[in-house]
Write a protein that binds this DNA or RNA. Structure first.
Lengths: 337, 337
DNA sequence: TTGAAAGCGCTAACAT
DNA sequence: ATGTTAGCGCTTTCAA
């Protein structure tokens, strides 16, 4: 391994001088700078960032902790996060909790051990509290990614889950639906609660009394509560539309509906949060509230880095990104019978 | 920040003793071990992995360098890589070159600076040579991910691009196609060359003379050569089927075909390499040679770690993963007219 | 403008 | 079974 001393020796200067050349700090005569640079290039010297981190107490590493790498929303978001970090000279350590507190705990420990400079964090749910407290105790800044956790104040980048849900419900009601079911994520997740709020608010707005038995709570990661959906569908008054709280739930729901011989949207309409990117580009089918996933990552990282570099006022900041209703064909007027 | 000295002091032992407790090395009396552990827990001490890396000359970090994070093949692969690494106590630093040599170069430099223990590497193409040489010069082991680069010998995990292509062509020929076009990636990429070989071999096998003007070479990342496709389609003898060398190309091709009013598969059949995961689950449309993306990542990381930990014989190893023809509806018998 | 000394937090090697 | 010393590769004083 080539060290700074190898360069120093060969260029006939001290290690300090080499360090200054590399970091462009302090004053150096042009002559020595060039001589040193020459040797650096010649030997292909690349500084050891571990050693540097150790003395600087800064790693220039950021962590992105998400809950489902399979979800295109997060894939696109990861891209945005990477781009922003890269542009500002940071590297990104990814973590994927799979909505699992145990895995999340392991990642947080790895984060602590790596001494990353900050975390863009989509917590698995409210029980992520201790993990966040651990970060706070160690003064590692983090930005909440869409989901927040009660009891913790920090910067947040988010969409407007409540408003988006209202918009989706309004659209269904305009189409003529009155019996709308909600297939939601876990109530331990803040966005699931907000989407449920919006769902209820949207119904009330239209003078419809929300029916709690029309709400199914499962996991954002994948829909597997077959019996729950079964129950929903076999009600005397079958719902004519389903609002899935995210894209993965929508896919699960639609597959199950199809398996049971129900056509979408002829027999039942389906709408959801978050787009499917590739699948939608390929076949524009699902009507969704699309959130700007790339921006979530990009702006979230910007905010995190601004915080780390002291470019933000001390107060926690919140940035809400706009979402957009994309009307396609998975929802139509309810069947008349 | 809590250091090993804080623990040592509070537990009334030396730093070495604490180190031994943490790493379960050397002999320690049960009494002191427990006392030390107690203090560690109490203070929530987590070792600084930078300091450890510095002395150990091992970071327990691996890098996964891929070419298109948007492609579900790589997303799934990344998951597999993460899982394998995590299981064996390594963290993964992701890099996304976007098939761009310049970005790749930056990532390689970051890799060198981070002193990762190894790299699972899908090179952008043959001109990645200097980057790989840099890794070799620094003794950083790497495993080729599907693509190899002439002039470099190293471990490789790959699919059988040539065989897969032959299988796809055979299938099309069975359906009755004789005029089959190839929309390929860049010829700087080894898998693109192999798929082209397979395409030609498949045709020859059936007694069809390959027509070079039926081959279009563009980029794996996305299809944008509209004029090229235009030219293909406006030949006196229009191809009745298109073999897209990967999934992203297939999507681009199909979108363009649709825009021009051509139905798939009624007017023209399309098949490709690599599945679409989510999109396919949702709507099983595209007929593909599916490669086990997760296994690519999982086994690739295993191989890399085995290499790093000296569990492999010195000779470079090659592992070929089987692919599978998944017949769906995007290819059918050619139109009769 | 340049360099010497010290130390970031940890562990290998060698005492005791 | 436990502790001392030295040093991983770098940068921050501070002195020359």
């Amino acid at each position: 391994m080539i060290t700074i001393y190898d360069i120093a020796k060969k260029a006939n200067v001290s290690a300090m001088t080499v360090s200054k050349v590399i970091n462009r700090t302090g004053r150096i005569s042009t002559a020595t700078r060039e001589r040193v640079q020459q040797v650096i290039d010649e030997l292909g010297y690349i500084p050891n960032s571990n050693a540097r981190s150790l003395v600087l107490q800064r790693t220039h590493m950021l962590s992105l902790l998400i809950t489902d790498i399979t979800n295109p929303f997060y894939t696109t978001l990861a891209r945005g996060a990477e781009d922003a970090a890269h542009l500002r000279g940071y590297r990104v350590l990814f973590g994927n909790s799979d909505e699992d507190y145990r895995k999340e705990k392991e990642y947080v420990e790895a984060i602590l051990s790596t001494r990353v400079d900050g975390v863009l964090f989509a917590p698995a749910g409210d029980r992520s509290l201790p993990h966040l407290q651990q970060l706070q105790a160690r003064n590692i800044p983090f930005v909440f990614l869409d989901r927040t956790v009660p009891g913790i104040t920090s910067d947040v980048i988010a969409g407007d889950s409540r408003e988006g849900a209202i918009e989706l419900i309004r659209y269904l009601i305009e189409l003529g639906h009155e019996h709308i079911a909600l297939v939601n994520g876990s109530s331990e997740v803040s966005t699931a609660r907000l989407r449920e709020d919006g769902y209820i608010e949207g119904l009330k707005e239209a003078g419809i009394t929300p029916d709690p038995s029309l709400i199914l709570r499962t996991s954002y990661r994948d829909f597997s509560d077959d019996e729950g959906l079964e129950r929903l569908l076999s009600r005397s008054q079958q719902p004519t539309a389903i609002f899935a709280a995210n894209n993965m739930l929508a896919i699960g729901v639609i597959r199950l509906l199809r398996k049971r011989g129900l056509r979408v949207p002829e027999d039942i309409s389906v709408v959801c949060f978050d787009d499917l990117d590739l699948a939608s580009a390929f076949d524009p089918f699902l009507t969704v509230i699309a959130q700007p996933a790339y921006e979530f990552g990009y702006q979230g990282m910007q905010m995190l880095i601004d915080r780390i570099e002291g470019k933000l006022s001390p107060a926690a900041e919140t940035m809400i990104l706009p979402s957009k209703l994309r009307i396609r064909t998975s929802a139509s007027v309810p069947p008349t019978n």
